[in-house]
């Protein structure tokens, strides 16, 4: 009995430590977003803002990059206008993310289904090659993309990001969906076929509704990858999306941690809301195929 209690205590203690480890950075970011810069790094550590302020959040909406400028002799001139560009960047990131998800689900849905249902000469090799492409770091192929988009006149456009993101999200989505389609009983399609349904109708009316958790899980992972992608946006555009804009808040001369924290909170909200909305599908989607 005593051993059992001790074991439970250890488990809970371990869980509590894990939670602190995971959540403390988030807590620190939230805390910082309500502080003035002079309170950051103060010793002893402030667990709660001494004079809580919304100035960092207001700055995001007003585009004021130096909300705490004192205006003294030689007062700080803001070193960046990134704050003013954050809200439009969030809009563009959403647009790019949604477009990448949509194109991924259409292409990867069809490709994943084909991999699952058709065996053709070289299909295994093709599938393995597809998975192997995930091993190539995206940064290694940014130059060919840049040249291609320069010739096509697509530099500094959202379309450039949508096309390039598809290149490294599609293999992941195809793999996830193929795995999911494998778990959908073929007998359902066979029965539908017997009743006269076409292959496409089977896919749309029978398989797709059953595969909804897989499609949502794949879509969410693809969205998160597109949302947080930094380097392609940096190279192919003039900071159209959120990550490079947030990076613009940092430089050697000025490091506005509190404004950066508020900006980070803004950028965290959309993916978190989406993940919360669809969380019940995610586990089911990712666990597909684990139990026969």
């Amino acid at each position: 009995m005593r051993t059992s209690r001790l074991r439970t205590l250890v488990v809970y203690l371990g869980f509590a430590l894990f939670l602190i480890w995971v959540l403390f950075p988030l807590y620190f970011t939230v805390l910082s977003s309500f502080m003035a810069p002079s309170e950051i790094g103060v010793k002893p550590f402030h667990w709660w803002p001494e004079n809580p302020t919304l100035a960092n959040y207001i700055a995001i909406f007003t585009g004021d990059s130096a909300p705490f400028s004192t205006g003294q002799d030689g007062g700080i001139v803001s070193s960046t206008d990134a704050v003013a560009r954050l809200v439009p960047a969030i809009g563009r990131s959403l647009l790019v993310g949604v477009a990448v998800v949509a194109s991924n689900l259409i292409i990867a849905g069809a490709a994943g289904y084909a991999f699952s249902r058709y065996e053709f000469r070289g299909s295994t090799v093709a599938y393995l090659l597809l998975l192997a492409s995930r091993v190539v770091p995206a940064i290694a192929v940014v130059l060919p993309f840049f040249v291609a988009f320069r010739h096509l006149g697509l530099l500094n456009t959202s379309l450039a990001l949508i096309i390039s993101y598809n290149a490294f999200t599609l293999p992941l989505a195809i793999w996830l969906l193929k795995t999911y389609f494998d778990s959908v009983p073929r007998e359902l399609e066979e029965a539908a076929k017997v009743d006269g349904a076409s292959r496409l109708r089977c896919l749309l009316m029978i398989v797709t509704p059953i595969a909804r958790p897989g499609l949502i899980a794949a879509g969410l992972l693809v969205f998160l990858e597109a949302w947080s992608e930094f380097f392609y946006s940096l190279v192919l555009t003039n900071s159209l999306t959120v990550p490079p804009v947030v990076a613009g808040l940092q430089n050697l001369q000025q490091f506005s941690w509190t404004t950066l924290a508020a900006a980070t909170m803004f950028t965290v909200v959309p993916p978190v809301l989406i993940a919360l909305a669809f969380q019940r599908y995610i586990v089911a989607g990712l666990a597909a195929g684990s139990v026969k």
Partner: peptide, 20 residues
């Protein structure tokens, strides 16, 4: 159609490599 989609899934990642 499905094979085409499969081909698209395979070739999109390779397009920039081939073109540029």
């Amino acid at each position: 159609l499905l094979r085409g989609a499969l081909a698209a899934g395979l070739t999109v990642p390779a397009v920039p490599l081939l073109t540029a």
